[in-house]
Computed example of a mutant assay.
Amino acid sequence: MRHLLVSEGQGDRCEVVLPGTLKDLARDLGLTHEVLYRTLAGLEREGVLERQGATLRLAK
């Protein structure tokens, strides 16, 4: 996820607006949606990632 945000994100916080659902993103990344959900939750808990609707960004 960090690589996706850094390589595809925009601005100083590497913001990515997802064009589809998290399930679509998981499929595109070759992951199950459960693994993606757990990964996102862990990164949010660690303070690495912020998620707001369809927008993902690195935390400050």
Rank of each mutant, 00 (worst) to 15 (best):
L29S: 03
L4W: 05
V17Y: 09
K23H: 15
R51N: 08
Y37H: 06
R2Y: 03
D28K: 11
A26G: 05
E8S: 13
L31T: 05
A26E: 06
G11M: 12
G42T: 12
D24T: 14
G11C: 13
A59W: 02
G11R: 03
R57M: 06
R51S: 05
E34G: 13
T55R: 12
G53L: 02
L18C: 12
L22W: 10
M1G: 01
D28Y: 13
V17A: 13
D28R: 14
R51W: 01
Q52L: 11
L5K: 02
L58P: 02
A54K: 15
E44C: 14
A54N: 06
L5F: 02
L56F: 00
A41H: 09
D12C: 13
K60L: 10
C14H: 11
V48E: 11
Y37L: 01
R27D: 12
A41I: 07
T55S: 07
H3R: 15
D28I: 09
L49Y: 02
R13F: 14
E46P: 02
G9Y: 05
E50L: 11
L43G: 05
V48P: 00
A54F: 08
L36M: 05
H3V: 15
Q52I: 09
G11P: 03
R45H: 02
L43P: 00
E8G: 15
E34D: 15
R27S: 12
L49K: 07
A41T: 04
L31R: 12
R51K: 09
A41M: 14
L22N: 13
L4G: 00
A54W: 06
V17T: 15
H3W: 12
R51I: 04
G47L: 07
R57F: 02
H3T: 13
L36E: 08
E50P: 00
G9H: 08
L25K: 02
E8C: 11
G11N: 11
G9N: 09
L58K: 01
R27F: 05
R45I: 04
E8N: 14
Q52H: 11
L31Y: 13
D24P: 04
S7R: 08
C14E: 07
G53T: 05
A41E: 10
D24R: 14
L29Q: 08
G20E: 03
M1L: 11
K23M: 13
T39F: 02
L31S: 07
L22Q: 14
G47E: 10
L25W: 08
E34H: 10
V16A: 11
L40C: 01
E50R: 11
D12L: 13
G47D: 01
L49E: 06
R2Q: 10
E46C: 06
L18M: 09
Q52G: 04
G47W: 02
K60T: 04
V35K: 04
D12N: 15
L18K: 03
D28E: 12
D24I: 07
Y37W: 07
R2P: 00
L58T: 00
L58E: 00
L43K: 00
M1H: 00
L18Y: 12
V6T: 07
V48W: 06
R38L: 03
R2K: 03
A59R: 10
L49V: 05
E50M: 05
R13A: 12
K23W: 06
R38C: 03
G20P: 03
L29T: 15
R13E: 12
V17D: 07
A54Y: 14
G11L: 04
T32C: 14
A41V: 05
G53C: 07
T39G: 13
D28H: 13
L58G: 09
L40E: 04
